[in-house]
Design a protein around this nucleic acid. Sequence first.
DNA 1: TAGATTGTTAATCGATTAACAATC
DNA 2: TAGATTGTTAATCGATTAACAATC
Lengths: 222, 222
Amino acid sequence: MPEPEKRATLADQVSEATTSRLSVYLRCLDQLAEAGVATVASNTLAARFGLNAAQIRKDLAHFGELGVRGVGYDVEKLRRHLREILGLDRTSRVGILGAGNLGLALADYSGFRDGFEVVAIFDTDPAKVGRRTRRGITVRHIYELRETVAREGIHIALIAVPATAAQDVVDLVVASGIKAILNFAPGALRVPPHVKLKSVDFTVSLETLSFFLASDRDGNQP
Amino acid sequence: MPEPEKRATLADQVSEATTSRLSVYLRCLDQLAEAGVATVASNTLAARFGLNAAQIRKDLAHFGELGVRGVGYDVEKLRRHLREILGLDRTSRVGILGAGNLGLALADYSGFRDGFEVVAIFDTDPAKVGRRTRRGITVRHIYELRETVAREGIHIALIAVPATAAQDVVDLVVASGIKAILNFAPGALRVPPHVKLKSVDFTVSLETLSFFLASDRDGNQP
DNA sequence: TAGATTGTTAATCGATTAACAATC
DNA sequence: TAGATTGTTAATCGATTAACAATC
């Protein structure tokens, strides 16, 4: 079947750097709301959280006139806007691939925003299939993936399998119709262009730290 | 006591972007070595792994003349060099803060390179202190942090506590003398300038995915 | 109206990529 | 020597920051 004609979406016009800052802004605003602040200027926000005021204004301006000149941004209104922009006003249903330590940790993770709900977890190990997480989600065999994705309306897959299995699992995830993947396995993965893949590779981050320790230790020019 | 005079280290001259690519290059070279390839040109490496040849050469050139003109890079020699540059020729001893799902997942994680060894895990929950991970590491109370860091020679801390506790825990970690921190908790953390902090905030990544799903769904200009 | 702060345009900065002289 | 490929300089690109006109 032919891909539907791809319209120009907001996501095409907004850089990845901007997008991830939107999440950060929302978290800052949550704190301000908690503290009872009603209105905030980009300057204040920047000073308070170590950001750049011009960047905040530019990032937000992508999405319309969200502030009021001479006044600033209404905290509650901006929070609502950001939640809507980030798609947090609807619940994204999440499936986890891999019921090892990491997969189970993610399934029980309590730090997810409203807007995300873990609804399924998959593995291939017969010893794991059928078990339940602490939250009461039953581990399914990955051969039930396609059907479960359709039935449960899963939007996002979290890849928590060993690096050696990751590409195969991602291929199955893509085949099941999922269009957004967050990968925790180290190494590069290939996905078709209509699928959005983000990777959080902490092994690379760890080796970056190791580099800093090493060059600190030696502390000399090349 | 006064901080020792800070010399200009390699880390000051090399961008973070370059540093994390070094890890990626090493992984690619591991694959080539596995496949029995002895020598590789930047062009070949780039084509094979979807990288840019000029960037590879520039990144590597920071660390001396690692290749041979007209020939390319000796795979084994470059691997050794990269391991040394990244500090993977010595073992970095790792302590984990937080013995919840994520902390235990990290403690049992099998994907760490040689060069990293998890030697301790800490929590404040009396119900957790004294238990052992599958790998046999005993969970210690965080009030033993300082002493354990000194005794075990811990170089790197992984923060796997809830966001609300993260800043307090990081302060203790810094006070214990650790200079490299990898943070898994969402939100910004403050550390003194001599400490290197990296954060892998998967909640921001997840919200970025949510944004793409949302703008895909709507698919219209602002 | 005067003061404040936005949205936006222009200037700066840094990182990526291309080009090429050096050299194996 | 001729061909290949590096290390490095120059050109391009994009992102960040500064400046300011619009406007509340």
